[in-house]
Nucleic acid binder design. Sequence first.
DNA 1: ACTTGTGTCTGTACCAACTACAGAGCGTAA
DNA 2: TTACGCTCTGTAGTTGGTACAGACACAAGT
Lengths: 138, 138
Amino acid sequence: MAITSPRAALKRAELAGRLGCNLETIRYYERIELLPEPARTASGHRLYSNEDQVRLRFILRARSLGFSVEDVRSLLGINDGRPSCAEVRALAEAHRGDIRKRIADLKQMDRRLGEIMAGCTGAETPDCALTDKLFEDS
Amino acid sequence: MAITSPRAALKRAELAGRLGCNLETIRYYERIELLPEPARTASGHRLYSNEDQVRLRFILRARSLGFSVEDVRSLLGINDGRPSCAEVRALAEAHRGDIRKRIADLKQMDRRLGEIMAGCTGAETPDCALTDKLFEDS
DNA sequence: ACTTGTGTCTGTACCAACTACAGAGCGTAA
DNA sequence: TTACGCTCTGTAGTTGGTACAGACACAAGT
């Protein structure tokens, strides 16, 4: 039971292991002040509380949804105090717009790539329709 | 006529202007050896030949299709000599797989974001369903 | 000839968002 | 006690450029 208790103070590697992030990411988030400085043992080893864990989980989730570190800072109220629901929504909508733009850009790349690959047969010759097309005059 | 001749030696800004890239990008590509060192005037100003222009256009096009700089290096035969059509095709297929994976990832983000935004009404309150969900236990 | 304005040269610093590593110190089990 | 493994710190590397400072170069105007 105690093994998985969310209340025990965790060392850095334990926290990273639980939340599935890299060890160094935690120190990085501390450095850029997304995470507060944690408690320490007498000899200086970091000890993370349950509150720390909750906050880090929030950050990791927001990052996994593609929010930038600056966005996360805003969501956490680090920039201008705790954001209103309207502000959060605006941030999320803007971010969603970004995501959709990136999808559209990638789709266009895929389409263009398909066009340019037509004729590149994969024959074992040095002449290649793909590179030829990239070299062509505008 | 001479103004737009593709044979005239171009200065850096002229080349950048023609191909629509940033001035500094050209020097960057020279530094990482995608572009060869160009000719110089007596006083050291770079002069780009038509051949340089063709090569840079190739690089910019490949980059705009999402190929990495290392990919471009391979396509140009800088790594292991001029690639065969089969090698080019393999590179392009792998790259296309990458693009599609990125599209899939972004679509999933968009979907998850949509789910998590449900209930975030944008009302002018500090309580927000979106942040609440990000804070929730696993 | 001189000045002024613009272009170019070099080296280096900066961006995001981590990740990795070196060298030192700490903790614990045998 | 000694060995192993974890943690500490600071710093450098990653990708693909972009930006800037300070020193020259070049062309046009006076």
